[in-house]
Amino acid sequence: MTDQRVLSAPRVLAWMPTAVMVVVAVADVVSGPGVGFLPLVSLGPAFAGLVGGWRRTALFGGAALVLCVGLGLYDGLFEERRGFTAMISVAGVTGVGIAAAVMRGRSEAELASVRSIAEVAQRVLLRPVPLTAGPVRAAVSYIAAVAEARIGGDLYELVASPHGIRVIVGDVQGKGLAAVETAAVVLGAFREAAHEEPDLLGLGERLERSVEREVGDEKFVTAVLAQIGTDGEVIFLNYGHPAPMFVRRDGTAHFPQPPAYALPLGLGAHEGDAPKPYRVAFAPGDQLLMYTDGVSEARDENGAFYPLTDRAALLTEADVHRSLEALRQDLLRHTAGPPHDDAAMLLLRYRGPGKTPFPATE
């Protein structure tokens, strides 16, 4: 059975063991026994161990031993120690290559298992948002700062509740598994409280208590909460998070600021202003982009921040998902790859009141 690692390896490395042994054999035959090319046959299994599994390494090791015996007999090297020394060299390199291939295979299997678990965790933690919720259409984007990463400290959620569409976008202080754990606490509390709390202030207080109880002073979370009803308005609570961007039907963009920025979630026990709800008109055709600072603070190679206001014109596709994808690709071009911080975006497009009664989703 063909080793799948060989199929995914660069073609040059896959053919290198064969090419090396052919070159060594030709050089040895042409140069004669006096030059001493025979020990170089061990390069075949050495290169095989770099790419394939242990079976492939053993196969090239066996072929190298056969070639070594043939060339040794041709050169008459078994009448002295040189032939046997060459065979020992090939056998030793083959053994080391097989051991390395086995250890690498185990490491690759463990990495694949970890990635699989991370993908499951991502689906649970950051599950897909509804395509349609009440009067809005929604699309989401998450860009991990590390290309191999699946989850991080940014969070988002949209819940269609009896009290309206409740939305959260947040950013956990710090990185790694501790940040993921904190994000899970916030999202779990939000998903439960969004259905139970009749007003947004009560929802925010529930989140504050959950973060303080479960996380303590070690972590805090910047977040913005939004509630969208059928009255053409959005109510916001801002806990030290970047202000959302509104893109009006005529293409103009602005960032409504809260009356006062409250401390992030988890720091409510410290002195500071309590969050104050504020309302912003949300008419049919308008768009609301909620994001984390991995978007607004993304820099290019010259250190310039991403000009989010100037990119509002990208959100013009008839399909909300294609609009957000256009913005995502532009952000990646600006940073020439994944940004230095995780970047989450949630785009909501208002379709108009009366389209679908709460809490219908699809």
Rank of each mutant, 00 (worst) to 15 (best):
L289E: 04
G105D: 15
G52W: 02
P284G: 10
G152V: 12
F282P: 02
G174I: 01
Q4W: 13
V146Y: 14
L203S: 00
V247R: 15
E208Y: 03
L13W: 13
G53N: 05
M87T: 01
P357F: 09
G266P: 01
T182A: 11
S89E: 11
S296F: 00
R322N: 05
L331A: 04
H254T: 07
H334N: 06
A343L: 08
A100C: 11
R349C: 03
P33N: 08
P39A: 11
R166T: 04
G44R: 01
F220T: 05
L73T: 00
T230V: 13
T252N: 14
A298P: 02
T292I: 11
A149P: 01
A48D: 08
A343K: 03
E212Q: 14
T316C: 09
A178I: 08
A269C: 06
V102D: 10
Y156A: 07
A189F: 08
A64C: 04
E325Q: 13
V221G: 03
A145I: 13
R81V: 08
Y142D: 12
V120L: 15
V66G: 04
H270K: 12
L308T: 12
V146R: 15
A243F: 15
F37L: 10
L177C: 06
M1R: 15
Q4L: 12
L200G: 04
A318R: 14
A99R: 02
R106D: 08
M245E: 07
G72T: 06
G176F: 13
S89K: 02
F190W: 10
I117F: 07
R82K: 08
S113E: 14
P45E: 01
G232Y: 04
I117T: 11
P244T: 03
D310T: 15
A193K: 04
G32Y: 06
L314F: 14
D310Y: 01
W15E: 03
P353M: 01
L348M: 13
F84W: 15
A360Y: 13
L131S: 13
V23M: 14
D250V: 07
R191H: 10
L315F: 08
P275M: 10
F78H: 10
I228Y: 02
L331N: 06
P39C: 08
G76P: 02
Q173P: 00
P359G: 08
V180C: 09
V320E: 01
Y239T: 02
R137V: 12
V96M: 09
T222N: 09
F236Y: 15
H254E: 15
V129S: 13
T132C: 08
A223S: 11
G72D: 11
V30R: 07
L314Q: 06
